[in-house]
């Protein structure tokens, strides 16, 4: 039973991480590319870390919860890097599929 749960978590994690990176290559402009990694990768790594937590908790050496820290850290930092990247791209006036409203009143 535990085996199946672990396999499921690991496979889901790896699949989402892969799809996130696939989005990085497949999509056509910077702003759409930004979506793949920031979302798919957080859930992918999250699943992987939960799997690790479950695995090491069942090794007979007591609970292992410190994976939660990395998950928490990633969930807090991933949006911040995405926001900063989007801001930098707007600042540099990168080519976009849809024109941004007005690039002149940036507040950096």
């Amino acid at each position: 039973m535990l085996d199946y749960l672990l396999s499921f978590l690991i496979l889901t994690g790896a699949l989402f991480t892969f799809i996130g990176s696939l989005g990085l290559v497949r999509l056509r402009d910077f702003f759409t590319r930004l979506h793949g990694p920031t979302k798919a990768t957080t859930l992918g790594v999250g699943c992987m870390l939960i799997a690790s937590s479950v695995y090491f908790s069942n090794q007979g050496t007591g609970m292992s919860l410190h994976e939660v820290l990395v998950t928490l850290f990633l969930f807090i930092t991933a949006p911040i890097s995405a926001h900063l990247l989007a801001k930098a791209a707007l600042h540099l006036k990168l080519k976009s599929l849809t024109p941004p409203p007005d690039t002149d009143k940036a507040d950096y």
Binding site: K39, P79, K87, L90, A106
Partner: peptide
């Protein structure tokens, strides 16, 4: 802004 980044197909870009 964080929540917007983490949820369906949206990224917050500028305040």
């Amino acid at each position: 802004a964080n929540v917007i980044c983490l949820t369906p197909g949206t990224v917050s870009a500028r305040l």
